[in-house]
Computed example of a mutant assay.
Amino acid sequence: DALIFFLINGGLGYSVVFLLGFLVNAAALWAFIGKRKSWTDTHIYMLNLAIADSLLVIFLPFRIYDSFFCLPKTGLCTFLILLHFTNMYASIGTTTAISVQRYLAVRFPMQARLWKRKKEAAFVVCLVLWVVLLIMCVVFREENYPERLWTCFDRCKDQPLSLKFVLLLVVFGFFIPLLVVVFCSSRIICVLAKADDKTDEKRNIVNIVTANMIVFIICYTPIHVAFLVNFFNHKLEKWECKYIPAHVFLLVSEWIASTNCCFDSISYYFLLKGFFSERT
């Protein structure tokens, strides 16, 4: 358990995520901003996703530093934890919005083409998402105050998250978006698979939708299972906090969730591939 604790909660795993995530998201932001005159609603969603991933990545050095030198438990820790999970749920929310947008475009293609305010709608959805997440941070900020922490990034098991906060994260933050993503992705795959004209573009859409759905499930399921597991394992002594199996599972699942900022490059690749091929 101690070895896993070092590898995952330590700097090694997050260093890899930082390096890959920084390169991928810096390239994506550069490409999106460079082509801003040709943006569609999809590009706005993808830009929002890249911003959320980039904010998560650029603050990972604090977590890497903490693994080697231990940051003091101050308000900075509370800020870093809130920022980390705000960006994670911004990514979840944006991915869900993209899934709905793709489904509507495939299921109702004529209406989607005729609607003239798609970009404005995408901007409003992204803005509302960030406003809701910021409000949640303010309302539940006490959940991660320094006195509730074992280290700067780790909670003690005798200071569990409140039940209403756990249910909010699991049900509204993950389970409902999961149902939406799976439903929309499955319907898109079914509709395009039954199409008579299976063009390369449609095959690419099926590939990217399938990949995004799998990545979403793999990256975000473990951490929400871990939230529930750790909540029901809170009747433990403080000194056991670091090495109990449930806590190690939480550390591993947090790292897995953070890798999503690298896997989102699948979406960027297919979108930007079409972006540039249209002009060659």
Rank of each mutant, 00 (worst) to 15 (best):
G13P: 02
L19F: 15
W30S: 14
W30D: 10
R36I: 05
L47V: 06
C70P: 08
T78H: 07
F85P: 04
M88V: 13
G93T: 05
T94W: 10
A97P: 03
Y103L: 07
L104P: 01
R107V: 06
Q111T: 11
W115M: 14
R117W: 12
V125P: 02
C126F: 03
W130C: 11
V131L: 12
L133Y: 06
R148S: 13
F153L: 01
F153N: 03
D154P: 05
R155S: 10
D158E: 12
Q159C: 08
L161H: 10
L161C: 05
F165D: 09
V181S: 03
V182P: 02
C184G: 03
R187T: 15
L192T: 01
A195H: 11
K198H: 11
T199Y: 07
K202S: 10
R203I: 08
R203Y: 15
V206S: 15
V209G: 00
Y220C: 02
T221L: 08
L228Q: 04
F232I: 06
H234E: 14
E237R: 13
K242D: 07
V248N: 08
L250V: 07
I256N: 00
I256Q: 01
A257F: 00
S258R: 04
S258V: 08
N260M: 15
F263I: 03
S265A: 12
S265F: 15
F270Y: 07
L271S: 15
K273W: 09
